[in-house]
């Protein structure tokens, strides 16, 4: 079973569909002396935080040892891939929902000042959005509140263009965002795939499977997979998905012009149900 569902799910349900994991008060009584708390920069410095680990990449023993600490840290900041269908259920629960600039992309590709055309793909969730002006640097570019329907349209728009839907906690299990992610600028996908920081991004509750009857071997899906899980099988002229590598994002299912790929429940497959 998914570890997060086990700990934070509501009676065996998916943890991110449990309203408790979105709940926060609007106010707190002031504590004067705490007013001047220094800002923790981890989230805004993103990749800088992982630099010491990456420096050790060609020293496997030291790398493994240091990685332990990072894995521990990510128990408080965890993520998971979700399907479009589940993301649409999430925005029915989460309030408020606000469109913001992707913090990862801003850091790795400096897209923030690319004007109106920049992909403002992330959604911030929860009452923290009401107090964003307190830390303008964190929400640089501002926040734009969306209705539930607008949020659904937003997610669908980017997902159908090839972005992976992920969710992120800020103090697990509190869900603070729905991100529309794109390797390599997405730090979560990158740290999971390239450096094995598993709790930063767990695989989703589904996996993609090709229906060989329908697949025409056009290869469209291959271009879209961000996880390196799809290739064209030259001999059969069909697309081949390695389900052990698949994160279940569903991007390929929308890319396929034949509707030949479907998402199936991970937990129904004995060989994959412990693979997150």
């Amino acid at each position: 079973m998914c570890e997060l569902c086990e700990k934070y799910g509501d009676n065996g349900g998916r943890w991110y569909l449990n309203p408790e994991n979105y709940a926060r008060p609007l106010y707190k009584k002031v504590e004067k002396e705490k007013e001047k708390e220094p800002m923790i920069l981890t989230e805004l410095q993103g990749p800088f935080y992982y630099k010491p680990l990456i420096e050790l990449k060609d020293n496997p023993e030291a790398f493994e040892k240091m990685r332990e600490g990072y894995l521990k840290f990510h128990e408080t900041m965890s993520g998971q891939v979700v399907s479009l269908e589940d993301a649409e259920k999430m925005v029915e629960i989460a309030h408020p929902i606000a469109r913001i600039d992707c913090i990862c992309r801003r850091i790795t590709r400096a897209t923030l000042e690319d004007g109106e055309q920049r992909p403002r793909s992330c959604l911030g969730l929860g009452v923290g959005m009401f107090r964003w002006e307190e830390w303008p640097e964190r929400y640089k570019g501002g926040v734009e509140f969306l209705s539930t329907e607008e949020a659904k349209e937003h997610i669908e728009h980017w997902h159908k263009r090839g972005m992976v839907i992920t969710i992120m906690t800020f103090g697990t299990p509190y869900i603070g965002g729905i991100c529309l992610c794109d390797y390599p600028d997405c730090l979560a996908i990158r740290m999971r795939l390239d450096y094995g920081i598993k709790p930063f991004l767990l695989k989703g509750h589904q996996v993609a499977k090709v229906n060989y009857e329908e697949c025409t071997g056009c290869g469209t899906c291959v271009q879209r997979c961000q996880f390196g899980a799809i290739k064209m099988e030259v001999t059969t002229k069909k697309s081949n998905i390695d389900m052990t590598r698949c994160f279940g994002c569903g991007v390929c299912t929308y890319a396929c012009p034949q509707d030949a790929i479907s998402l199936i429940d991970r937990e129904k497959l004995p060989g994959l149900k412990e693979e997150w």
């Binding site: 920069l41 805004l44 410095q45 990749p47 850091i107 790795t108 640097e137 964190r138 640089k140 390599p184």
Partner: peptide, 18 residues
């Protein structure tokens, strides 16, 4: 091509853009 760089603020203050 490998997106190896990152740019980030070295300090962040309340009510202020860096």
């Amino acid at each position: 091509p490998q997106a190896i760089f990152a740019v980030a603020p070295t300090k962040v203050e309340r009510f202020k853009e860096t």
